[in-house]
């Protein structure tokens, strides 16, 4: 049986788990608390594929579209 890896699909941008210090920096830069971050479900296939856990923050690197490259973040929730 074929194993499906969603991270290779062209619709899926790169997801990277942030280190705790990086999260703190991020929150500081934007002067926000965790609950103001966009969310991603722990059950999300990509989150499962990269082995991230609830409470962590993923950095998403979107390529293409007008900016060429853009970074966004999502907080993993249950």
């Amino acid at each position: 049986m074929k194993k499906i890896d969603p991270t290779h699909h062209e619709l899926v941008p790169e997801h990277v788990v942030l280190e705790e210090e990086e999260v703190e920096d991020l929150l500081q830069i934007y002067n926000i608390t965790r609950d103001k971050l966009p969310l991603i479900k722990a059950a999300d296939p990509v989150v499962k594929a990269i082995g991230a856990r609830p409470g962590q923050v993923v950095k998403i690197i979107r390529r293409g579209s007008p900016a060429g490259e853009a970074v966004t973040y999502r907080l993993i929730i249950k």
Partner: peptide
Amino acid sequence: TTRTTTNDVREIHKVLGIEA
């Protein structure tokens, strides 16, 4: 499996995640 798609957004969400 890297290019095949559907026009059903909910299905894409289920299979490929929220960013997709």
